[in-house]
Design a binder for these strands. Structure first.
Lengths: 120, 120
DNA sequence: CACCTGTTTTGATAAACGTCAACATAGAAG
DNA sequence: CTTCTATGTTGACGTTTATCAAAACAGGTG
C-alpha cells in the first residue's frame, strides 16, 4: 500500500522473462519501464558490490552476515538487499537464524542478451 | 563545479575498457563506482528509449530531431542525451544544422560480458 | 545584417534516493 | 519467559534527479 501504483515492482521471487533486444527496434514505453527498473537496481555501487558478493559466493548463495561489511550500516544493507529482491535479481530464504540470498539466474541472462545484441 | 568530486563522471566521448566479471570475485569499490555509473545511465525509461531509438536507427546513428518524441520536452531530451554521452554510451557529432548520435560499441560489449559471465 | 530552425544550457521545483539512528521482529538458547 | 543475536522496518534528513520554461547558442537562409 506504500506503492505509488506507477512502478511495476516485482513483489516476491518472480522473475519475468525479460526483454526484447535493444538495437532491433525502438523500445516500447512499457518495456523501457521494466528494463529501467532492473538497471536501476544495479545502478548503485553498494548494491553492485552486494550483488557481486552473493553471485561470487560459494554455491551462489550468501548469508547477510557474510556480505554486510560494505561500508554502510546494517539497515542500509538490508534496504539495498530488499531493492535487489524487488527487482527480481536476488531471492532470499530464511534458514534458522540467518537469511540467505542467491542470484535469480534468468533475469541476468535476459539483460546480458539485450546488451549483447546491442554490441554488434 | 556542481560535482561533489566523488563521482568520476566521464566528461567527453571517452569510453574506458570496463569491467571485471561479476560472479568471479567480489567487486572492488572502485570498479563498483564505475559500473554503477554505467548502469545508472540506462536506469531511466526515457534514456533507455532514446538509446534504443539511436541503436535501432539506420546506420546506427540518428538525428535528435528523429528521436525527440518520447513524451518529454525537447530540453529534457537533450539533457538525457548528454547523460548518455557522459556515460560513454553515445557519441555525438554536429553536421550542419543537426546533431547526430551513435552508439559507442565497446562499452556495451563490456557490460554484456559481465552480465553474461554472471548467468551461468 | 536580420531571421528562422535545431540544439544546448540555465534556473527553479518537486519527487526519488541513500543513509543513519531507533525501533521492531524472528529464531535460538538459557 | 527472558535474553541474545541476526535481520528487517520506520522516520527523518540531506543529496541527487527528472522535468519544464526561458534564455542562449549554432548554423543556415533571406
Amino acid at each position: 500500500m506504500s506503492n505509488t501504483a506507477s512502478l511495476p515492482l516485482l513483489e516476491t521471487d518472480e522473475a519475468p522473462p525479460c526483454c526484447p533486444p535493444l538495437t532491433s527496434a525502438p523500445l516500447s514505453v512499457e518495456d523501457s519501464v521494466r528494463m529501467a527498473a532492473m538497471f536501476k537496481a544495479l545502478a548503485d555501487p553498494v548494491r553492485l558490490r552486494l550483488f557481486s558478493r552473493v553471485a561470487s559466493h560459494e554455491g551462489g548463495e550468501a548469508c547477510v552476515c557474510d556480505i554486510q561489511d560494505v561500508g554502510v550500516s546494517q539497515p542500509t544493507v538490508s534496504h539495498h538487499l530488499k531493492k535487489l529482491r524487488e527487482a527480481g535479481l536476488l531471492t532470499s530464504e530464511r534458514r534458522g537464524t540467518w537469511v540467505y540470498y542467491r542470484v535469480a539466474p534468468s533475469v541476468l541472462a535476459g539483460m546480458a542478451g539485450l546488451l549483447t545484441a546491442a554490441s554488434r
